[in-house]
Amino acid sequence: MVEHDALSATRDAYDAAAATYAQLFRDELRDRPLDRAMLGAFAEVVRAGGGGQVADLGCGPGHVTAHLRELGLTVFGMDASPSMIELAREAHPGLPFDVGSMTAVDVADGGLAGVLARWSVIHTPPPELPAVVAEFGRVLAPGGHLLIGFSATDGASHPTQEFDHAVAPAYRWAPGHLAALLRASGLAEVARMVREPQPTDRRQFQEVHLLARKA
């Protein structure tokens, strides 16, 4: 029931904010060279492994999904918010987008070469995060890669911290804690990027990208 309530509340909140969110974040990658670098590295390792289908889970209005396609990946987007998916389809008609949950991705075991979860897990209640990470591991093929982005806690002694998010309740995660969950699901960390908060950032949190590979 906790998962259902949290998912429903998050979906409803993003449905209500979808148009504003899409406008605010449409060009966000333009001013984020480090994010573009990590997305580029992700695309390169997926292609080097032979390519295959990639999922952008929690894709929102689809701008990052479209960027992955520009980087040469065969990609689809999935989001819990029907309004977000509607906007993504309108903005990027050549890409497939579907409504769905990260806890039950409609893909066969080992069916994906890559998974992107960029700020997708921040609304996941802490007791539910292991199941979400396990689902990432399930859908990835051996040798497949996961790139996960999230806001970091203030220290290793705080595995998770709730923070005030404009749309829905959200959580920050200790990078070591999240890396341990990845290992438990058969995903070995390959690289980590930590971006320090900048004066122009809305929130003064560290942002972390973890790149992991399924053994």
Rank of each mutant, 00 (worst) to 15 (best):
A170P: 04
T124H: 07
G77C: 11
D109V: 14
P93M: 09
A113P: 00
L140V: 05
A6C: 11
L116P: 07
D201E: 15
M1R: 12
S8L: 09
A17L: 15
P127Q: 10
D98N: 13
R192H: 06
G72N: 13
L187S: 09
L182D: 05
A134V: 08
V133K: 04
V2L: 15
V121Y: 12
R89K: 11
D56I: 10
H4P: 03
G100L: 00
H123W: 00
H92A: 11
S81T: 07
E3R: 12
V132A: 03
E90R: 05
V194P: 00
P159R: 14
A131Q: 00
R30L: 09
A41S: 03
A18I: 08
I148F: 04
F150V: 03
S81L: 07
A212F: 01
R202G: 12
P159Y: 13
V107D: 12
R118G: 01
Q206E: 07
G149W: 02
A104H: 12
V208I: 13
D56K: 13
L95Q: 02
H63I: 15
E207L: 12
L187T: 09
A141G: 02
H123M: 01
R183K: 14
A104N: 06
A13M: 14
L181R: 01
H165R: 06
Y21C: 12
P169A: 11
P175C: 11
V54F: 00
E189C: 06
G155E: 09
M38W: 04
S8E: 13
R172P: 00
S151M: 01
R30W: 02
R36W: 08
V121T: 10
D31R: 11
V208S: 01
G58L: 02
F150Q: 04
Y21K: 06
F25M: 11
G111N: 05
R118S: 03
A16T: 08
P199A: 08
H67A: 13
A55S: 10
R213W: 09
G52M: 03
V107N: 14
G51M: 00
H165I: 03
R36V: 11
T153Y: 02
T103A: 15
W119G: 12
T153K: 05
G49P: 02
P126L: 11
F76N: 00
G62A: 14
P125R: 04
G94N: 04
R183C: 05
V54G: 01
H177F: 09
D27W: 13
H158W: 09
D56F: 10
M78Y: 08
V121F: 06
V133T: 10
A170S: 11
A41T: 02
H165Q: 15
P93A: 05
E207V: 13
H4G: 03
L71D: 09
P142Y: 07
D56N: 08
L178R: 00
V121R: 15
A113D: 06
F76M: 11
H123S: 04
L140Q: 03
S157P: 07
P61A: 15
G60N: 01
P197L: 08
S120Y: 06
D5Y: 05
T10A: 15
L87G: 00
L73R: 08
A152S: 06
E44K: 01
D31W: 10
T10Q: 08
R32Y: 10
A18S: 07
S83W: 04
P93K: 05
L129A: 13
T153W: 04
L211C: 08
H165P: 09
L34D: 13
F136N: 01
V121A: 13
Y21E: 07
V139I: 14
T103V: 12
